[in-house]
Design a binder for these strands. Sequence first.
DNA 1: GCTCTAATAT
DNA 2: AATATTAGAG
Length: 571
Amino acid sequence: MATMGGDRRQMMDDAAEDKFPEGLRILVVDDDRVCLKVLEALLRRCKYQPTTVMDGKTALRMLMAGKQQFDLVITDVRMPDMDGFKLLELIRLEMDLPVIMISIDCDKKVVMKGIDHGASDFMVKPVCTHELKNIWQHVQRRRNPKAISHISDHDNDVQRVQPATTNKSKYSGNKRNGGDDSSKNNEGTHISAIHRKPRMTWTIALHNKFLEAINRIGLDRAVPKKVLELMNVDYLSRENIASHLQKYRLHLKKVKSNPSGDAYERWNSSYNMNNKGNFMHNHEHGRWSVSSGGTASWSTNKYGSTDHLAPPMNIQSNFYMGSYLHDGRMPKYVGELPSDARRFTGFADPPVSQYDNIPNEIMSDEFPSFNYSNSRRDIMRGKLMEISKGKTPSNLQSSFANTTIGGGRSLVASQVNFPHSNQLESYATSSGRLPLQNEKAPFISNTTSMGCFTERLAPFNMASNISSVGTMWNGSSALDASRTSTNDTHLVNSERTTLMLHNLQTDDFISLTRLHDGGDRASIFPMQEGTLNQQPLIDHLNEINAFSMDDMFSNMHVEDFTGDVAIMEEA
DNA sequence: GCTCTAATAT
DNA sequence: AATATTAGAG
């Protein structure tokens, strides 16, 4: 099929062919206008082709939009909004592009941090022509992987397996940005921002589906291929399943070795061990109990950790309610919550995905059909995956195809726009600190998780809408004595919950959240049952203030966040 | 040549 | 930590 998923990232001007490194397209990011100008001039002097922007967000937008191709990025470290490290991280996640950091700060730690995070180079201001002259080497290096493996080859620790033959994996099909092309890109070609393959995200819904498949097949006989078939989610690959299965088995093993783990541990032996202290209604016990927040349990069933999974009696789907508000108005829309653990560094953290940081306009730019509707997002995810796999995106409708597993329709709660004040509240992280490098959460937050719906699914039928109960949570749990700080206490009170739910059910909720694909299936029943503890707002604010809210939210006011969350991002 | 899975990379 | 890739073996 001649689809060329690969062709997308094509070509660059043949014009520059011979003159490399002349004309190397460099994106320069610095909030300091003067520095920016100076850098620009210097780069020009070196015959490069600089493009300057004053903030990371814009830089990212440009990179992601792909309207312009770049070969290298030079970014200042200290910048409001999104600092160089965050930018670096996001770039690294999404594309293969050398990033050079510059800073006035020559503190070893800072430099180290930059390098450790993948910066190709770190320069101290003021930068001079001399230093810029050879930055093309970083571009060249990417083009020639051997250059790197050579270096490591010197170590007799022949551990690293990065032989030049790498490009010939059996999976050549979905190979990361077609490593073999590199050989043909030879001389004089721009490397340009080559997007990485999108990462798939195991949402709780997907995980549940995965579990369902495993249960049907039987843990022993469950192999990637079978699971894949059963799950019937078009954008998943066997490799995706294999990876997840590996992780799952590892988890089971762990649980098995520690069968006496306390309830807390059990519940949290899930996707995200970081989420603590969230409430979840546990039907099993008929009352509110602590559970891992925003994450799904690995279905450690009530039969304990056995070699074979018993029917999933405790599968829980969690949905959250995102937030950002609009004059205290109600949800502009609701959508499914990418309840994926990685998106939450803590219960109240905004869901973070590589693309969460990218303004919707970018998505819109790239994908005309992209809009805020939740289902739409899921579809886009599928499309992106397909594209990344070199497939011709199937028609959107296919994304809604029912799976063989369940047919029930359901309502999925999720992202809601919240009143402004909530932004702050919801930003406290369970760890009481700002999202760090690894927690990609620069200016993100189109959405903030405000609470969660939990749902219990009937055994063997994840698609059915049985006994589902939703509630907002408040992270402060009396049951969770292990929590170390109060930072994970979130501002979600029952009144709001009520209000939200009310609106959800009377507004666009239904029409917007009906999912038929591998998406989450759940019906929501607003319940006041758990009037979780309510810590005074002021407490929360105080805690939050300690985190330098400016950094975290400076962006939130820039535009109207939609609360949409892209799950996958393209490569 | 395809699949699985442990090991490793990112 | 979560996913992706690779290496080897079947």
